[in-house]
């Protein structure tokens, strides 16, 4: 009756070693994935779905043209808007194949690259465009983009897709 239990004032120690082990493993896994993911930069638009492909080639850092559901974007800047893969007539030349605002932007890029390569011989324009396109864009628009790029000596294209 008169005996009182003494309260145990010691704080039990939690063994965090196992938790730490798990975190370290997670950290290593994330770091490996991080380095693999940042080896090439793919900046995507929020308004697009990539097609799927079984290709194994990894993306390269080149001049990027993005065609989402509403815009044509060159290196992150909106060049013109389109309506579900149809370019407005006022943006086309008389043949109906060349997209004039796109031609102007690509010409500037080509000139800039030529100017820089006149000082830096290592930087050569290879005439390659990385093309990111929404999977539902019709070929008629792809043809116009390829034709326009071809006029500025961008003759090779690298289509970006999601790996299957």
């Amino acid at each position: 009756m008169g005996i009182r239990k003494r309260r145990d004032t010691t704080i039990p120690e939690i063994n965090i070693t196992a938790l730490l082990d798990m975190f370290v493993m997670l950290l290593i896994f994330l770091l490996i994935n991080f380095s693999a993911a940042t080896s090439h930069s793919i900046k995507t638009s929020g308004y697009m779905d990539f097609p799927l492909s079984s290709s194994n080639k990894t993306p390269v850092d080149m001049l990027t043209v993005t065609v989402d559901r509403y815009n044509i974007i060159v290196d992150g800047r909106v060049v013109l808007k389109h309506d579900k893969g149809v370019v407005k007539k006022m943006d086309l030349d008389e043949t109906g194949f060349m997209i004039e605002p796109l031609y102007n932007v690509l010409s500037k890029h080509a000139e800039k690259t030529k100017y820089i390569s006149s000082f830096n011989k290592k930087l050569k324009s290879e005439g390659i465009i990385v093309l990111q396109m929404d999977k539902d864009i019709p070929f008629s628009m792809l043809r116009q983009i390829m034709y326009t790029a071809g006029q500025v000596e961008y003759n090779d294209f690298k289509f970006v897709a999601l790996k299957k």
Binding site: I16, L19, L20, F23, V24, L26, L27, L30, L31, N33, F34, A37, T38, H40, I42, F50, S53, S55, N56, K57, T58, P59, V60, V130, M146, G150, N155, D156, F157, K158, F159, V160, A161, L162, K163
Partner: peptide
């Protein structure tokens, strides 16, 4: 150390991309 790792993991999780992109070559 645990504090540091707990701080780093969310940063990495946000920046890691789990989608893999590939390219296909085409010419004019």
């Amino acid at each position: 150390l645990l504090d540091f790792i707990v701080a780093v993991i969310p940063v990495l999780l946000l920046s890691v991309s789990f989608t893999e992109y590939v390219i296909l070559d085409a010419s004019l």
